[in-house]
């Protein structure tokens, strides 16, 4: 069965839909966590520490966190590999372009591939910046995410990279959420408007919620 799914364009698209849904669920939790930054360093850093103790005493320190990380890495890899293989196939299926060109589909739909690449690169930078601190500016402080976030958004490039990526994320979710529903066979004529509305609301709330943090630092609300 796994073979049938992976070898079919319809099945591979379902892999993309499910992995995308997992990442989307994570992002909802992520944005709620991020917004605690507006309640001060104490609450934010406490929340960050709590993430490591979730599930205790059943789970050991950081076990839950690592479990989530493993699931996310699997989801990102499955999503990216399917997208790459399907895109290769799509490009091969239409080798010669039309001479008479027309603007096609919505902006969100046309930017799925580039948007996905931007998001992939962003994730790498984001982890190196705020999880490992490898490319962090201004001295990374282990266990003090509030101070680290303020550092990152005190640089112009930190803000630019983050805001561009979050706009790409909004567009990606706008087409991706609705698209995933169709791929998994959950769409219908009567449900179409509701699905599109949910996609738009999710895209808007997530983008606005994430961008609120750099804007907060830039305007001095968070310092």
């Amino acid at each position: 069965m796994a073979r049938t799914v992976w070898d079919s364009t319809v099945g591979k698209k379902a892999v993309m839909a499910v992995s995308g849904a997992i990442m989307l669920l994570y992002l909802v939790a992520h944005v709620i966590g991020n917004l605690k930054i507006f309640f001060g360093a104490g609450e934010f850093n406490h929340y960050a520490h709590w993430l490591r103790t979730v599930g205790e005493p059943f789970m050991h320190y950081e076990w839950t966190l690592w479990l989530v990380r493993v699931v996310l890495v699997v989801a990102v890899v499955a999503h990216a590999v399917s997208a790459y293989q399907l895109s290769r196939r799509d490009i091969k299926a239409r080798p010669s372009k039309y001479v008479h060109k027309k603007p096609r589909a919505s902006y969100a739909t046309r930017t799925m591939r580039w948007g996905g690449i931007i998001l992939g690169l962003f994730i790498v930078w984001h982890i190196l910046d705020l999880t490992t601190g490898t490319v962090h500016s201004g001295g990374f402080q282990e266990g003090r995410p509030y101070e680290n976030v303020v550092d990152t958004f005190s640089t112009w490039y930190g803000n630019v990279i983050y805001i561009v990526a979050m706009l790409a994320l909004g567009l990606h979710i706008r087409h991706g959420f609705w698209s995933a529903a169709q791929t998994l066979g959950a769409g219908s004529r009567t449900r179409d408007r509701a699905l599109k509305a949910v996609a738009n609301v999710l895209a808007l709330l997530l983008t606005a919620g994430f961008i609120a943090v750099p804007v907060g630092v830039m305007t001095g609300v968070v310092s």
């Binding site: 698209k13 399907l86 196939r89 799509d90 091969k92 299926a93 239409r94 087409h175 698209s179 791929t183």
Partner: peptide
Amino acid sequence: GFGGCTLTG
């Protein structure tokens, strides 16, 4: 050798 669906409509 047909491509896959990206739901462009």
